[in-house]
Nucleic acid binder design. Sequence first.
DNA 1: AATGATTCAGTAACCGTTTTCTGAAACAAT
DNA 2: ATTGTTTCAGAAAACGGTTACTGAATCATT
Lengths: 356, 356
Amino acid sequence: MTRRASEPADGRRRSTIREVADRAGVSVATVSRILSGDYPASPATRKRVMRAVEELDYVANAHARALAGTSAKSIAIVLNSVISPHYAHVAQGVEAQTAVEGRLCLIGTTGGDAERELAMVKFMREQHAEAVILVGNVVADEKYRKRMGQYAHALTAIGSRLVLCGRPPLGPDVPAVVVEYDNAGGAFAATSHLLSAGHERILCLGRRPGYTTQEGRVAGYRQALAAHRVPHDPALEVEGTTMEWHEGYRMMKERLATGPRDFTAVFALNDLIAGGACRALIEHGLRVPDDVSMVGFDDLQPSLDLNLTTVHLPHEEIGRTAVRLALEHEARGGTPPHVVLGTHLVIRDSVRPRVS
Amino acid sequence: MTRRASEPADGRRRSTIREVADRAGVSVATVSRILSGDYPASPATRKRVMRAVEELDYVANAHARALAGTSAKSIAIVLNSVISPHYAHVAQGVEAQTAVEGRLCLIGTTGGDAERELAMVKFMREQHAEAVILVGNVVADEKYRKRMGQYAHALTAIGSRLVLCGRPPLGPDVPAVVVEYDNAGGAFAATSHLLSAGHERILCLGRRPGYTTQEGRVAGYRQALAAHRVPHDPALEVEGTTMEWHEGYRMMKERLATGPRDFTAVFALNDLIAGGACRALIEHGLRVPDDVSMVGFDDLQPSLDLNLTTVHLPHEEIGRTAVRLALEHEARGGTPPHVVLGTHLVIRDSVRPRVS
DNA sequence: AATGATTCAGTAACCGTTTTCTGAAACAAT
DNA sequence: ATTGTTTCAGAAAACGGTTACTGAATCATT
């Protein structure tokens, strides 16, 4: 046979189990058995095989092994980007629980692109992932539901499963495990905290219609206003594009530029937005919390630097739960579970009672 | 044949190319060729095959495909943890460049554990990764060099390669590509900036002997002092364990508790430490930059929230470069390259001239 | 009309493991 | 000495694809 095209130019080649067997003077079957655990081989044979393995620096071909049957199970996580602290924490949780369950973790990123998401899911399917965990905020339109439905059925068809993490459920006929945060509940607590401090004009920063995460948080904000019988002024809800620092900065900057300050507190839809907004306030000569109170959402790194009162989300826990539920559901079958994880407020020092 | 143990209980089974072929009434070869690209099949046949694929929801078995020869090349990145913003950015860069090069990116985390790192490298070797990129700060002791040497040779032996990212090189006889930051240069610039503002008592926060990253930065700090003929006071170098927020907080807190303030500026070995230190200063009634000037290192999220002057590191660039070099080197052969990426100071508002 | 070129599709070998089945020694028991 | 058990190790059949080789139509050429 001629040399394969994929071989490196320098002629180096991965050694096979056959070569190990030849060198040790045994059959491939024996090598395989000795390597894959507790086979009652004679000490002499075992030693010869192990020596051959070392000398050839042999590692098994994972693909061949998988094809033949036995292979480490793996769990896939697909997310927009690994540089978003929130996603990163979820990935960490998935990774940790995956290791606990004796599985391997495959991470794929999509950059928020539906095409790449599709490709990623297909890839994970080809890799025989036991479960595919999709994480991230999303527009829950009809197109999305349809796409997810396809994923769910395609995965189920091959004995795998779809897990949605921080995404809305898809309806009873779609076999997907769902793990969510209680966004509305957290926002309710955050807003109530400000209301209890006497604030009534609370700016809500980062609204984005269609996006489920933002919508949940805005809903909680409104519920809190209603519960405290404070009139809801739509003009206090500022719309944003992304949920990033610069967007928070931009929103607050524009707000302060276009008119007199008509709020005494801010509810930022996440900590990054809170950070940007704080910077804009400071540049405007306003201090947090002395002049303006602020509450965030996420309890990630920025809240430490800002000393920000914020809503704590169990980021890693959601990842761990996703894995656990996927495997439990695999074992048990039945209707896929839908879990909502609770949140709680972390009090730091970014809120002051309103001076009247 | 009896049912395999790995099959799910509900009897769902991944369909094979054989089933597709049967349903379409053609041979497996035809299906394979049609699916793998531009094969001149008659439109009728192509349509029949595609329909069968859709109906059966067929995806190829990646393992079988890899075994048979053609398979997507992949590049592996192994890091301590994905929640560290710095690592995450590097991973992002690797991911991006990997996609550009038409490869797949496998991410594995080790939690800083040498055992898991070993297991991870072995796994990536089994997966036929074209290159394994190891990223992260490290103790460069003899044991470490030996371990890396083993990785490098083992990978080279199978036509793959080792890439060290932000780790020290291993010597001329070890075939590993190295991409580093100019830690000393960045620290020199940061410290010089403070010195130019008139500061002479500059606290250096986060020293950790043995760790190459920290050592490089401390070296730059000392070089800058020497260049400005400012006496070097070892008592100004504070030792830390990790490079995290709480450690920065702790170091500064302890420093302020144990005596009068004997410094006018702070050089934090990274932004997280700077953040913690800022908080401690504020709690002590000291303002940044009015009372104490501060410079950080990394230019990550915290520097925005803190408005911190800091050393910018091309985090994503280092990841992209690592991939590019790995593939170039694969094509060209020869001595593996060693690249040092430059840094630059980003001026924000955390430094004031010293008032004398 | 005979021949050569081209198109399309099938046959079968091979990729590197695992694992079932089988068999040869070695040993113990009668 | 014969037989029945173990113990250890080999032969060969999967696993699910890819692809070199081959061959039958179909088409163009003289």
